[in-house]
């Protein structure tokens, strides 16, 4: 199916203050792929993600989601296809209760009655947050907020899930829960992260950005082992691939 393909061609983005955040980025992500976009702070990751959903319009180049070129006319359809989870869940949860928040998207899509109830209950169930439905967002813990933020997007059944720094600020248990949750999502996943161990667990493919350009694009296991390449991009080999700190022995 071509409608879950994400294709970016020679994408350039210049901010109004003259900063060139993306300098001709190209890649093609297929249906069902799980891809991490990694890079140093300021490498252009977040700017790139904001293009996938049409918040930024390209200075040059094009973004194609499935069969549609991203443009004003195709925007509503594309926003339905691409579910986006933002870094700070406080930005994403703006309704009075968790239930209302998860129902926001489906209501905008025209769902109501039993269908709406079921869709919201399903999404909350999938992230293990059914018991939080009646709570207000400001009464939740960080991990709960994150899971609910993901539910708000899952409730719209997106074909492509885009997440900005999904694991930032989570405790190890909440992080582990999140990894399990994302593994279950079978559609295309694209996310940015500095947590390279998480990347290693979730992704087959990594796109490494450096100063607004694609520095490397390939299998996660290969790129994440390349010490020199990672150091050049201000990153480090993930802990799980480093030698044991005591005996120096490597896993696997």
């Amino acid at each position: 199916m071509s409608h879950h393909i994400v294709e970016v061609k020679n994408l350039r983005h210049v901010y109004p203050d003259g900063t060139e955040a993306l300098k001709g980025v190209s890649f093609r992500i297929h249906h069902g792929e799980s891809v991490a976009i990694i890079g140093a702070n300021g490498a252009g990751k977040s700017t790139l993600l904001l293009h996938l959903n049409g918040y930024h319009s390209p200075t040059a180049g094009e973004v194609r989601i499935g069969d549609f070129l991203l443009s004003k006319g195709t925007l509503p359809g594309i926003r339905r296809t691409v579910g986006m989870v933002f870094q700070d869940p406080d930005d994403q949860l703006f309704m009075p209760t968790v239930y209302d928040d998860v129902a926001f998207g489906p209501l905008n899509l025209g769902l109501n009655g039993n269908e709406l109830e079921r869709c919201v209950a399903d999404a909350l169930e999938r992230v293990g947050a059914a018991h939080l439905a009646a709570k207000a967002p400001y009464h939740l813990s960080g991990g709960e907020k994150k899971r609910v933020a993901i539910a708000t997007v899952l409730s719209m059944s997106p074909d492509i899930l885009v997440l900005d720094e999904p694991a930032s600020g989570l405790d190890p248990y909440a992080r582990r829960q999140l990894i399990g949750l994302l593994k279950e999502f079978r559609h295309t996943k694209i996310f940015t992260s500095h947590d390279l161990d998480l990347v290693l667990e979730l992704c087959q493919r990594v796109i490494l950005l450096k100063e607004g350009e694609v520095r490397a694009d390939g299998p996660a296991a290969e790129i994440l082992r390349d010490e020199r390449l990672l150091a050049e991009c201000r990153l480090e080999v993930p802990l799980s691939l480093q030698g044991c700190p005591i005996c120096g022995k490597r896993q696997g």
Binding site: L50, M84, F86, D88, F94, D100, F104, G105, M156
Partner: peptide, 22 residues
């Protein structure tokens, strides 16, 4: 800045000006 990000999050979920309420 936060207002801008919240607005983005609303757009991402199909906000088109009217506020749906149950």
């Amino acid at each position: 800045l936060r207002a801008e990000r919240v607005h983005r999050a609303m757009l991402a979920r199909g906000f088109s000006g009217a506020f749906p309420t149950r």
